[in-house]
Amino acid sequence: MHIIVCVKQVPDAKDVRLDPVTNTLAREGVDSIMNPYDRHALEEAVAIKEQQGGTVTVITMGPPQAEAVLREAIACGADDGVLISDRAFAGADTWATSYTLANAVKTLGAFDLILCGKQAIDGDTAQVGPGLAYRLQVPFATCIQKTRKVSSASIEVERMMDDGFDVLRLPLPALMTVVKDINEPRVASLKGKMKAKKAEIRKFSAADIGADPQCIGLAGSPTQVVRVFSPEARGDRKIFSGSVEEQVDQLVECLKAYL
């Protein structure tokens, strides 16, 4: 079974600060980490590999330093890593990113399963996974909380819902995005770290994946960021107490004031 895991290098949320003047992310001196949801996607891929056999390939689109997350993934059990990097990819939104990733996946050849984190903690869009599935024309499911059964032909999973979960069976090849409840990611092993240090990371440029220059980077991105800002903290909160009925009555009274 060939499993591909898409990972992203993001700023460590513990250190995130906004520049008060420009309202953009202050990246200087901020550590970069593997997107936390992607760690769960990787763990699930490695667990499926350990059970089913096969290989796990990790891919990431990003600047040259994103190679670090690929090595981290190899230390955690992935077999190899591919860095999709080119100045032409800069400024990509989710539409251009999913195009780029799809071309990279096609370049890699046949696969059985693609795993992604539910979303990245920097952009928070949750669009790249589904977008990639659309580009590759494979079935997908999002917010997977459990893998129930895997065979060479299909995968049975639980999709987290507000009020419980759905049980889905997807024919392979397919794509799924995962939530944190799916597993506890392992700590990178000593032998894994030694292997990761020596591993050769393959590099794909825009030309290597046959990308149309109009479909990648800023040129291929219909989304334009107009302004980034921190929402103002709202101080006017109210907490109701009493029985549910009493709380609803109080809420209705409150809302009437805005009518």
């Binding site: 392992r186 700590v187 092993s189 000593l190 894994g192």
Partner: peptide, 20 residues
């Protein structure tokens, strides 16, 4: 089990027997 997965049990075992 996490410690095992991280290979920490292999530190003290000679290499010819699967350790580090």
């Amino acid at each position: 089990q996490d410690i095992a997965k991280a290979d920490l049990f292999s530190i003290f075992v000679p290499e010819q027997y699967g350790g580090l």
